[in-house]
Nucleic acid binder design. Sequence first.
DNA 1: GGTTTAAAAGGACATATGTCCTTAAATGCT
DNA 2: AGCATTTAAGGACATATGTCCTTTTAAACC
Lengths: 160, 160
Amino acid sequence: MKKGDYLIERGKICKEIAFINKGSFRTYYMNDKAEEITACFRTEMSIVSSYRSFVLQEPSSLSIKALEDSELIVINYENLQNLYARSMAWLNIGRLIAEMEYMNMEEYASVLNNESAKDKYLRLLKEQGEVIQKTTVESIASYLGVTRRTLSRIRQEIST
Amino acid sequence: MKKGDYLIERGKICKEIAFINKGSFRTYYMNDKAEEITACFRTEMSIVSSYRSFVLQEPSSLSIKALEDSELIVINYENLQNLYARSMAWLNIGRLIAEMEYMNMEEYASVLNNESAKDKYLRLLKEQGEVIQKTTVESIASYLGVTRRTLSRIRQEIST
DNA sequence: GGTTTAAAAGGACATATGTCCTTAAATGCT
DNA sequence: AGCATTTAAGGACATATGTCCTTTTAAACC
């Protein structure tokens, strides 16, 4: 995929789940105020999909966009269902993926609930520092649940 | 279980996952500042466990406590693994549980990231209004990611 | 390369939320 | 019932974050 390409667009049903061999992605959605909120960043060696849409096969509220030229290994919903039907190994893989997605989300919720804007930013810097170079301030701020203005203040403070 | 009993205590490995037939539970943990933070409330007809600890069979950072006298249907980790090993139906159930836990957590993170303290409280009132009667203001506040003081202000505002 | 357009930084003020306390209710215990 | 202890409410002030703009910087385009 080229930079800027969509893996999935809002409103469509997510038909595939992908492993990122190379590159990085941003997942985002619109909140009630029609603001674009980043749900997560994903980089190499991790899995990316509009997971809820994939699981329920219902229209996605998320969009996923390549932050740079990227390379994916993809599996299609129907094929995965067939594998589930035939193989216990794949059923286990399916559960492991779900468990991983859960644990990621649990971690994120805990951070949102407990850390100050500054701490959240420092954590992101530490854990996904590379990705920050590839996206906008706006998208980082919305991921952290703060405004651009607040993030700007934090970055100023840190750079001193 | 009697009111106040623990389904799981912090530090122990979560050995069972439970379906709540009757009653309600509060799940909580300590954050870095040694404050008790509510991770979730669960009521009848839903599943409760320290899911991460259960999945990884590692010590739980969560504690789970009965908010009232409750009745559970429980399955043990080893038994569930045996069922997984023998039955595709159970493997599917295992995945479905993980998927459900994921979707709950996704919803929670989205609320934390997008709603004002007041909106979060109103949502909790609507979605789990009964549970609020059974727990403390402190525990509700920490679930919403605000202080007691803020919640007190919100409640005052609403009651007018 | 110079002009246009978008993105980031930052000033000034407003608001929400937090901190620290005190007071008022509610709950538990003998 | 009456005291002790916990829990909730709320006042006063501090701080973090948001809103609305303007300025600066960087990127994109011809």
